[in-house]
């Protein structure tokens, strides 16, 4: 088998409601190697969370339907698995960290019980052994094990997120999906939690799919980055490719709309317009309406991912012209 832990091919996910069909993910391709950390970047509604839920085959159905594609996880297609096999896979092979630690823990169970629950489910241990392991996991994430008997409401947001991480790592998954793990935390706690995650990722040697809209977090943690827009990958490459050799106009727009210390006092440059309505996607490139470089052809033809270097891919028609450069490089 190859070194790929996760291979998503041509994934299409729709939410089919009475009002119409929401095209959340449209032919998404994504590969992740073992022990690598991939950042999935995109704005709200780009289909990041839907992609993550598809990997667990947990897209809420109805209204969500996976219409097409294959999700190969460690050599097996997730979408072909029976409910029993899925239950065995979830938590054991793939674990997920949720966005909001305030609501991701069950308020009526102690945190120790919640960590032990996952261990008890996937491993052949007694209740007491599972609870001991749960305490050990708490120590791993920097919480004294005496607090295993406490309830979630007795923890602060940052500590709850640590507990959520402990639950996710309890069964030593091969792939960890972290859905905006730091979005709901304040900045100092974000740094702590990121640091903790980095250490644990290294220690447990697992692959991580980190979903975020915070490019700072990506730069901090990720080996590779995929930028998605309207349910498709528009650019992917190593962190260096994306940050220092940006190719897609959308990625450039993302960088421009971030506050920059070197340009203190200047106005931010937001990307003009809104993401297209996912119920009514344009025929051509989904970003064309907002793209400063767009030509008429962009409005008609949807660009395919093209290889630029061994690691770097971009989906933009402008690169058919070899002299094309983004503005941020034009004056350099």
């Amino acid at each position: 088998m190859s070194d790929l832990i996760l291979d998503i091919q041509d994934l299409v996910v729709n939410y089919e409601t009475d009002d119409g069909i929401v095209h959340a993910v449209n032919g998404l391709n994504l590969q992740l190697e073992k022990k690598k950390t991939l950042g999935l970047v995109g704005e709200t509604g780009a289909g990041k969370t839907t992609t993550a839920l598809s990997i667990l085959n947990l897209v809420p159905n109805p209204p969500g339907v996976i219409r097409n594609g294959r999700i190969i996880l460690d050599g097996e297609d997730v979408l072909q698995k029976s409910p029993k096999e899925l239950q065995k896979m979830r938590g054991n092979d793939v674990a997920m960290i949720f966005q909001d630690p305030m609501t991701a823990l069950n308020p009526v169970m102690t945190v120790g019980e919640q960590i032990a629950e996952s261990i008890l489910l996937h491993e052949n241990v007694t209740q007491a052994e599972a609870f001991e392991r749960a305490k050990e996991m708490l120590r791993q994430v920097g919480i004294p094990d005496s607090r295993a008997y406490d309830y979630p409401h007795q923890f602060s947001g940052g500590m709850r997120q640590r507990v959520v991480i402990a639950i996710a790592l309890a069964c030593n998954p091969k792939l960890l999906i972290a859905d905006e793990p730091t979005t709901a935390l304040d900045v100092t706690i974000q740094a702590q939690v990121l640091e903790l995650m980095k250490e644990l990722i290294r220690k447990y040697e697992m692959a991580v799919l980190l979903i975020t809209h915070d490019l700072g977090v990506v730069a901090e943690v990720c080996d590779e980055v995929a930028v998605i827009y309207a349910g498709k990958v528009v650019e992917k490459g190593t962190a260096d490719d994306i940050f220092n050799h940006t190719l897609h106009p959308y990625t450039e727009g993302l960088f421009n709309s971030m506050p920059n210390l070197k340009k203190k006092g200047e106005d931010l440059e937001p990307i003009k317009g809104m993401m297209p309505d996912p119920m009514n996607l344009p025929e051509g490139c989904a970003f064309a309406e907002r793209c400063p470089y767009a030509s008429d052809a962009c409005l008609r033809v949807n660009p395919e991912l093209r290889k630029v270097s061994d690691t770097h891919w971009v989906a933009c028609r402008a690169y058919e012209d070899e002299r094309f450069q983004l503005r941020r490089y034009q004056h350099a």
Binding site: N92, F98, E117, S118
Partner: peptide, 11 residues
Amino acid sequence: EFVEAAYAMGL
């Protein structure tokens, strides 16, 4: 969300 998390755990 904790219900979703419970499913993601494999229950």
